[in-house]
Design a protein around this nucleic acid. Structure first.
Lengths: 159, 159
DNA sequence: CATCAATTCCCATGGTATCCCTAATTATCG
DNA sequence: CGATAATTAGGGATACCATGGGAATTGATG
């Protein structure tokens, strides 16, 4: 499970360190999947394990062929997704220039863990985004307690 | 179940002892999850077991993708939550500097048990907060008696 | 076939976080 | 009240991680 936010730098070769905890969450996988987010006001990259993309693919195949949502997912994710390999023991990946451009990333990036997927933001863009939703957020305690958290949990469900 | 309030000090390495009773409430888990509260006037950290976060995650996944509450929870909790490991047998965790800053914590902290979750306050901030509550609280006896306490209680339900 | 550019691989280093051992304080029990 | 255990707190050594640079490899081009 990807959690928390980590900041990291991109070097002249477009290399970036994937946070160690994210690598652990991959459970030994030596690849990671990344694609540009196509949400309206989400100027970032998204990513996850190979398994996540596989599951996504399975879900897509269950949708009706002409469903516009299906097409959006097919072209937006499967069609754009890159399987990036870690550089040796360093735990770095190389982000394609095209991806960096589309997310407006230059020097510093932030990895944001969101459960079974994560997002990669330009550091500044993320700060702006955060300010935006904190406005919207009510009291987090209330929000938590409004949820049904009282059920048994099976660890197998979440990596 | 996290109950009561305990005070504790932060050392130069940002280490803090988690109250023994809280550790027992975790039932042998060697990690604890903490994130900054994003409520408007809640200048503290929140935390709970890994299981709590997992359940939270499951609840979030049931919400509509574009629900602003969902995004607030995703970015506010999952995106911020750190899985902190206990330092050996000592029962201490290291709080990230960022967290301390956001909660205005310097030297002394207070753990406040709230059932499934707990809060970590700067000692002074909590005292101020308490004074505020006591202002608001009318007759606490009446308040307790207004609750529905007439049900069977099963110890198993609460860790 | 030679040259240049781009990418991949490998090692080096500085900083940080983790682990381990020890002392002081507090709680528990006889 | 005294003795023992458990918890909290402090400091040093170690391992890990993020990052930088250089060498080797590949691929494209003339």
């Amino acid at each position: 499970m990807f959690l928390s936010t980590y900041e990291s730098k991109i070097d002249a070769k477009n290399r970036v360190s994937v946070p160690a905890s994210f690598r652990k969450a991959l459970g030994g996988d030596d690849v990671i999947c990344v694609w540009p987010s196509f949400g309206k006001n989400k100027n970032c990259l998204e990513g996850g394990s190979k398994k996540l993309v596989n599951n996504l693919y399975k879900s897509i195949r269950k949708m009706k062929p002409m469903d516009p949502r299906r097409q959006a997912l097919e072209y937006g994710i499967l069609g754009e997704c890159k399987e990036l390999q870690f550089d040796g023991a360093g735990g770095r990946i190389v982000l394609p220039q095209k991806f960096l451009d589309s997310a407006g990333i230059t020097g510093e990036v932030a990895f944001v863990g969101l459960g079974e997927r994560f997002e990669i933001w330009s550091k500044e863009a993320l700060e702006a985004k955060r300010a935006e939703f904190i406005e919207l957020a009510a009291d987090s305690g209330e929000m938590i307690e409004s949820l049904d958290l009282d059920f048994d949990f099976d660890d197998e469900d979440v990596a």
